[in-house]
Computed example of a mutant assay.
Amino acid sequence: MKKVFTGLLLTSMFFVAFPADAATTQIKIDDVIVKSDTAPEQRSNRIMVPLRVISENLGAQVHWKDSQITLAMNKTLIVLNLNNKTVMKNDKTEQLDVQPYMKNNRTYVPIRFIAETFGSQVQYNQGTVSITSEPLLLDNKKIKALRYEYQMTMGGVIQDIKGNAYHKALYQVFQQKGNKVEAPKEYSWQINLDIPGSYSKRGQYRFMSDDTNTVKQFDIYSLNTAFPDELLQGHPHHLLHDVFEDSWYIFTDQAVQSIKQLINNAATNGFSTIISNTVA
C-alpha cells in the first residue's frame, strides 16, 4: 500500500537534543507558534515529531511507502526507514541517533537531522524551539506575509498567511498558469447573472514585503455558470490575473484546489491571522 504526501513542508523545523521534556516544548517557525494536536516526543534525548506535522509544514515533498519515508526538497533527498537508524542522504549512508517509529498510527521522525539537512537556523530558549527559514524573495524583497481576501454576499474576509514555506509553495502554484488569454469582457467581485461568460473574483492574493508594500498580486476569477452550457462554450472555468503585469491566463481547477488546501493547512497549523471579517 502506498501513501503519498506532497506538499508543503516547512524548511526545517523542530530540533534537537534538549534536556527539557518534549511534551512541554513549544515550536515556533518564522515567529509563528505551530499548532498541533500531537505534542513532540523525546527519545534518546532527541525531539521526535509526527510525519504529518512535517508534511503539512515543510517546504519539501514527503512520500511514505510501506516502512520507508522519503523527504525531498530542492536537490536534497532523505530516505528514512521505520525502526532503523540507517538513513540515506543524497545517496550517502549515515546513522541517526534515534530511529523513526510508529505510535498510535502515526510515524515519528527525528527533527534535528531533518533541520540540519535542509538547512535552517534553530535556537532553543526556555522551552521554545525557534526555527528561522529562508524567506521568499520577489524583486529582491523579502516576503513577510501573503494577504488573502475573499468576498461573500454579505461582507468579506481578509487574512494574513505567515511562514516562508507557505509563501514559497503558494507562489509556485501561481506560476503553474496556463496559456495567456484576453481579459474577459465582464469581471468583478460580484456574480453577474445577466451576462453569459462573465467572471466573479474568487480571491485576491497579495505578496507583501517587510514594509507592507505589495510586491506581487494575483487574482483568481471563476466563470459564472448560471447559464445554459451552449452559452458558456469556449470560456475557461478559471482565470488568473497577474495584476502587476495586467496579464490574464487560464488557470486549472487543480491549481485552485491546491491553493485552497495550502491556505487551509496554514489556518489549521496557526499560520493564518484574520485581519478583517465583515461577513454578516
Rank of each mutant, 00 (worst) to 15 (best):
A226I: 02
F218M: 09
S188D: 15
P184K: 04
H235R: 13
L232K: 00
Q190K: 04
E186T: 01
T214E: 14
D194K: 13
D219N: 15
D211Q: 13
N224Y: 11
E230W: 12
D219E: 14
G234Y: 06
Q217R: 13
T225G: 01
H235E: 05
L231V: 07
D211T: 08
Y221Q: 09
I191G: 02
Y205K: 00
L193W: 11
G234E: 09
I191D: 05
S188K: 13
H235C: 10
E230S: 09
P228Q: 09
F218Q: 08
S200V: 10
Q204C: 11
Y187A: 11
E230Y: 15
T225M: 08
K216D: 02
G203W: 04
Y221K: 01
F218R: 06
E186C: 04
E182D: 12
P184M: 06
S209M: 07
D211R: 08
G197E: 08
P196F: 00
I220W: 07
L223T: 01
L232Y: 08
L193K: 09
G203R: 12
M208Y: 04
D194S: 12
P196N: 02
Q190S: 10
Y221R: 01
I195G: 07
V215F: 09
I195R: 03
K216M: 12
S198Q: 09
A226W: 03
A226Q: 03
S209G: 04
Y199N: 02
S200A: 14
V215E: 15
W189K: 14
Q204S: 13
F207Q: 09
N213P: 00
L231M: 09
S200I: 05
E230T: 01
L232F: 02
N192A: 10
A226E: 10
L223A: 05
K201T: 13
E182N: 13
F218C: 03
S222D: 06
G234T: 05
R202N: 14
F218D: 10
P228A: 08
T212N: 15
H235M: 10
F207T: 05
S198F: 00
I220L: 15
Q204F: 00
D219G: 07
I191M: 00
A183T: 06
P196R: 07
L223H: 01
F227L: 11
S198V: 03
Y221L: 14
P184V: 10
R202S: 12
